[in-house]
Amino acid sequence: MVVWDEDGFQGRRHEFTAECPSVLELGFETVRSLKVLSGAWVGFEHAGFQGQQYILERGEYPSWDAWGGNTAYPAERLTSFRP
């Protein structure tokens, strides 16, 4: 999975191949867009795999509404991930 700290695949970029309990440890404040290259990941609103969670299947997510636009409580950012 590849993530960016700005919408539209802009800004700082990082690629994950294993779980990440906090993007803050990588110098990111948040993740605002992402691409899942294969498989599925779970993205969490807060560090430590806490808060609202989203199943992220293979594909592109250019902004928060692409992963959470249909929920009652959409998270505008993700800060931890698990494959």
Rank of each mutant, 00 (worst) to 15 (best):
T79Y: 04
A47P: 11
E19M: 08
I55R: 09
L34A: 10
V23H: 00
R77C: 10
C20Q: 05
P62R: 11
Y61S: 02
L24G: 07
T79V: 14
V36H: 05
A66H: 07
E19H: 08
Y61N: 02
E19P: 10
G59K: 02
L26M: 08
A75S: 14
V31R: 03
A72V: 11
F16T: 03
T71A: 12
A18E: 05
L37Y: 13
E60Q: 14
E19Q: 10
A47R: 10
F28R: 00
A72D: 12
E57M: 09
R58M: 10
G39I: 00
D65W: 09
Q10K: 15
W67F: 09
S22P: 02
A40W: 04
F44S: 02
L34C: 15
G39W: 01
A47S: 09
G51L: 00
G69W: 06
R13T: 08
Q10G: 04
G69E: 11
R32V: 01
E25R: 07
A47Y: 07
V42H: 05
P21A: 15
Q52C: 05
L34W: 09
N70Y: 09
V42N: 03
R58I: 14
L37S: 07
D7W: 05
T79S: 06
E15Q: 10
T71F: 15
E76H: 12
W64M: 09
Y73E: 15
V23Y: 03
A75W: 13
T71C: 13
A40L: 11
R13A: 07
W4C: 01
C20R: 00
M1G: 00
E76F: 10
K35S: 03
G27K: 07
A66E: 15
L34F: 11
L56F: 12
Y61F: 09
V36G: 00
G39A: 04
H46M: 11
T17M: 12
S38C: 10
L26V: 07
F28H: 03
A18L: 11
S38F: 06
E19L: 05
R12W: 02
E15N: 04
T17H: 10
N70E: 11
T71W: 08
G11Y: 04
V31A: 05
A72Y: 06
R58K: 11
A47E: 14
H46L: 12
A40I: 12
P21G: 15
W67Q: 15
L56S: 02
I55T: 14
W41V: 03
W64Y: 14
R58C: 15
D7I: 14
S22D: 15
W4Y: 13
V42C: 08
W64S: 15
E76K: 14
N70P: 11
T71I: 08
G69D: 11
T17C: 10
P74L: 12
D65F: 08
P74Q: 14
G69R: 07
N70I: 08
R13G: 05
G39V: 03
G8L: 06
W67V: 09
M1V: 13
G8C: 09
S38T: 12
G39L: 01
G48N: 09
I55N: 15
W4Q: 01
G27D: 06
S22N: 15
E76D: 09
G11E: 01
G39R: 02
W67H: 07
T17I: 12
D65L: 10
Y54R: 10
V42G: 00
D5Q: 08
R12S: 13
E15W: 08
Y73N: 08
G68W: 05
L37M: 10
P21V: 14
D5N: 09
R13W: 08
E57A: 09
E19V: 04
W4K: 00
A66V: 11
L78W: 00
T17N: 14
D7V: 14
H14F: 15
L26P: 04
T30V: 15
W64V: 15
V23N: 01
G8E: 09
T17D: 14
P74C: 08
S22L: 01
A47N: 10
E60D: 08
R32E: 00
H46S: 09
M1W: 00
S38P: 04
G48F: 05
L78G: 03
L34Q: 03
Y73D: 05
I55P: 07
Q10D: 05
L78S: 02
A40N: 06
D7N: 09
F28S: 07
L26G: 06
G59D: 01
D65A: 08
G68L: 11
Q10W: 01
Y73C: 14
N70R: 15
E57Q: 09
